[in-house]
Amino acid sequence: MDSLDRKIIKLTQSGLPLVPEPYQWLARQLDISAEQLMRRLEAMKNAGIIRRIAAVPNHYKLDYRFNGMSVWDIEDAHVDRLGEHLGQLDFVSHCYQRPRHLPEWPYNFFAMVHSTEQAGVERQIAEIAALLGDYNRGHEILYSTRILKKTGLRIR
């Protein structure tokens, strides 16, 4: 990543301009050609710096009122294998292995699920629990009650 990439990030981190030719518009701000800007965006996508160019919805406004962060205590020796498996479930939107903070926080595996009804989340959690079987030593669902902030990355 060089200084031009950084300028592109700063210029687009709050969103793409809503004009018919957005990349031309951005290129003009940076005093480069639209082709050069598009090549840079493609390169950042290929490098994984840009996951994708897309709309980020507000869950609640789309009626997804039940957003559960399910957290699980899985034996360390098995968490990787099980994590790969659970990551393939179509209703799991994000899933990670994270460190425990004993004794207050015994959970090392996180899987996010979303539904328009609580029963939907509960069904999904039951499915995960069934797949984990005896490897699940305990779990909880932390429902979100409010979005306090949702800007995405902002570099200064």
Binding site: I9, T12, Q13, S14, G15, L16, L41, M44, G48, I49, I50, R51, R52, I53, A54, A55, V56, P57, N58, K61, L62, K150, T151, G152, L153
Partner: peptide, 11 residues
């Protein structure tokens, strides 16, 4: 606010 953002999702 139906969409909170539209643009590149940076990693």
């Amino acid at each position: 606010g139906v969409l909170s953002r539209f643009g590149p999702m940076f990693h």
